[in-house]
Amino acid sequence: MGFELFSHPADIGVRAWGDSLEEALEEAALGLVAVQTDLDLIEPREERRLEVVSPDEEFLLFDFLNEVVFFMAREKMLFGQVKVFLEQKENQFFLEAKMKGEKIKPEKHKPAVEIKGVSWHELKVKRKGKGYWVQCVLDV
């Protein structure tokens, strides 16, 4: 499992992979935070929980990451640890995530850019072997 950031003319993309969809989504969320700051600088001081319900795997990636963006923006927080729990019932995905992190401290975290949202552009969720590979472009 892991993630990498890639270039897009005006923005930044995130690719992530893992042995399960849960793991790939966790990595994607960490990739998103890494666009703003060095993950090692984030201490797990506070926990936040979020839930999303989505009609397919690609909506799930879009909905989950946008929910992370919302929490970061509203609570002015950065998350360095993410745990995703997933359930599938009647063509709906139910996701719950627990995220640990702390409030943004500009001197400490030196956040570079604010993420406006996750776009649909080149957004992909693929099965790779037994695992998953996901990709999206962030509007910053």
């Binding site: 009609p55 397919d56 909506f59 879009f62 909905d63 946008n66 963006v69 919302f70 923006a73 509203r74 406006k116 949202g117 996750v118 776009s119 649909w120 509007d139």
Partner: peptide, 20 residues
């Protein structure tokens, strides 16, 4: 600011869902 970004996110979701 955040309000505009969230409107963009919310309605892009609705529009993509409508296409789906």
């Amino acid at each position: 600011r955040g309000l505009g970004h969230q409107i963009g996110t919310d309605y892009m979701r609705e529009m993509v869902l409508a296409a789906k």
